[in-house]
């Protein structure tokens, strides 16, 4: 009787070696620089208590707090400008102390958006390379003619993909823990901090799972590796663009609330937007993670079923 587990391990290890060679280190270096710099940028700011406690001047603007981080940042900047106008005119340079919720908003729209986008891109690319690469070079027959069931082959490659992007999730989580403990901690409750940390970990994992499953599905239905990687690249680019659009949603208020509403609905197609919303507002977290998780699972099952039924050429 063939030892299926030993076979699965061999396939996963082989795929992992390939994954490491396929620009993965470059992706990690790029991620490290951009995520690290933006995170450090967030760390260098001074933070104080919550924004509500700091507001001294009432502002008369049609902005709704809590719907998007950029709105809160805008409210803070306007409030800060108005409150420091007098001393500034008198020649006194004001010290900027960001309220901690503004700090969290900045952390979410800068390092975290970059981190999750990089992670999504890596997960999708690694997934996209798996099946299509072997099909293109026609080495899939070596696996398909072996006693390893096709389901095991597919899942082993998926496992290897996860193993290759797992360190990035850990780095994002470690960065989150560091910035919360080092910069935000005195001003937010321990419970709130723990929730934010765990939410970042869950959101990163679920989003990476979603994109890895999607990437593998693309890989299953694409003839060559380059085509599969390009297609997966487009999915993450569109998702990241929609998430960025969501961040800049307040800018579209000039075009009217209806326009904002339409654009907002559109941006919610992107799992990265769902992450941003869930992490910022915290209210829809479970629902949004469930949606992404189920979608990822559906992609995985469809990809698996397609692969099992496919003809393998040599």
């Amino acid at each position: 009787m063939v030892n299926l587990l030993s076979g699965m391990m061999a396939i996963a290890l082989d795929e992992f070696k390939f994954a490491i060679k396929r620009k993965t280190i470059t992706s990690y270096i790029f991620f490290g620089i951009v995520f690290g710099l933006t995170l450090y940028g967030t760390y260098t700011q001074q933070y104080g208590p919550l924004q509500g406690e700091m507001q001294e001047l009432p502002i008369n603007m049609d902005l709704k707090k809590g719907t998007a981080p950029l709105i809160d940042v805008a409210i803070f900047m306007i409030t800060f400008s108005l409150s420091t106008l007098q001393p500034a005119v008198a020649g006194v340079s004001p010290d900027i102390v960001l309220p901690v919720d503004i700090g969290i908003a900045l952390f979410i729209i800068a390092p975290l958006l970059i981190g999750i986008t990089s992670l999504s891109k890596l997960a999708a690319r690694l997934g996209a390379s798996t099946i299509a690469r072997e099909r293109e070079v026609k080495t899939m027959y070596l696996l398909a003619a072996s006693p390893q069931p096709r389901v095991f082959i597919y899942l082993s490659k998926f496992k290897a993909t996860i193993a290759a992007f797992l360190p990035m999730i850990i780095l994002i989580f470690a960065g989150t823990v560091w910035i919360i403990d080092a910069s935000f901690m005195p001003y937010i409750e321990t419970g709130q901090a723990s929730v934010l940390k765990s939410h970042v970990l869950i959101a990163s994992t679920v989003t990476a799972f979603f994109f890895a499953s999607l990437g593998m599905l693309i890989s299953t239905i694409t003839r060559n590796e380059e085509g599969a990687v390009n297609r997966s690249g487009w999915t993450t680019r569109i998702a990241a663009a929609l998430a960025t659009l969501w961040v800049f949603l307040p800018v579209f208020y000039v075009a009217g609330e209806n326009t904002v509403s339409v654009i907002e609905s559109l941006t919610k197609v992107s799992p990265i937007t769902l992450d941003m919303i869930a992490l910022y507002s915290g209210t829809m977290f479970n629902q949004y993670m469930l949606i992404q998780g189920v979608a990822g699972l559906v992609f995985l099952i469809v990809g698996l079923a397609t692969f099992v039924q496919q003809d393998v050429e040599y």
């Binding site: 009787m1 063939v2 030892n3 299926l4 030993s6 076979g7 391990m9 061999a10 396939i11 082989d14 070079v137 026609k138 080495t139 027959y141 070596l142 696996l143 072996s146 006693p147 390893q148 040599y314």
Partner: peptide, 25 residues
Amino acid sequence: VPETPRLHENKSARSELMYHGRLYG
């Protein structure tokens, strides 16, 4: 044995055989 065997060109024959053997437990 296919007409034109495609193998993992970066591997040596020995490591390809080793990998293949593991697939068979």
